[in-house]
């Protein structure tokens, strides 16, 4: 039987076998590159810098009572003016950080057709009024029952400040404490020329 067996000859590897070994490697390299690319893109971004979909859109309407209960602020009545809507609370330490900047901006722009409205967020009226008294907050502050206005403005965490132009559209949004320079830059761009 062994006589019939042909002499052993080296068998060359088929040409396609090398390609077979190459494509899984290429696939793995491709997937790794894709994941690394996505990670470097995602991790490179500041997760707190959430772009509001409301910028460039009409500001959600609101009509809210002031915390002292004496009057109300209706956004529709402020059409034609620059409106700064600042979400704050008495328990919010970052809001204390930006308080002086807001106070300076209110002082500087209140006679130039700019309205600053503080919307109290997740707070009690007593605490909010005590904070206003202690911090000498002179701009109108309103309460937001059920956080309906905060939800309409897509508030994540306070302080958040929205800048509404005379056309009633949201021009910009700032998350975290704002500086006077930031407010001034935003407001100056929105005010009609010659004002302010």
């Amino acid at each position: 039987m062994s006589a019939q067996v042909p002499a052993p000859t080296p068998v060359p590897a088929p040409a396609h076998s090398r390609r077979w070994r190459l494509w899984p490697v290429l696939a793995v390299v491709g997937v790794v590159a894709l994941v690394a690319g996505l990670l470097s893109f995602g991790l490179g971004r500041d997760p707190t810098a959430i772009k509001s979909p409301l910028v460039g859109k009409p500001a959600p309407a609101f009509s809210l009572r002031t915390l002292d209960g004496r009057s109300a602020v209706n956004l529709a009545d402020l059409r034609g003016q620059v409106v700064i809507v600042n979400f704050w609370a008495s328990w919010c330490t970052e809001c204390r950080v930006e308080h002086d900047a807001l106070a300076a901006a209110w002082q500087r722009y209140r006679d130039a057709g700019v309205v600053l409205v503080g919307v109290d967020f997740q707070d009690t009226r007593a605490d909010a009024l005590a904070y206003m008294d202690q911090a000498a907050m002179t701009w109108p502050a309103v309460e937001d029952p059920g956080s309906r206005t905060a939800l309409a403005y897509g508030v994540y965490g306070i302080p958040e400040t929205f800048f509404i132009g005379p056309d009633g559209q949201i021009a910009a949004k700032d998350v975290g404490p704002v500086s006077f320079a930031r407010i001034a830059a935003r407001v100056d761009r929105l005010l009609p020329r010659g004002a302010g």
Binding site: I50, K51, P53, L151, A152, Y153, G154
Partner: peptide, 10 residues
């Protein structure tokens, strides 16, 4: 409505 306020990340 929530997407209009918060974006699609909501």
């Amino acid at each position: 409505e929530f997407v209009a306020s918060y974006g699609e990340s909501v």
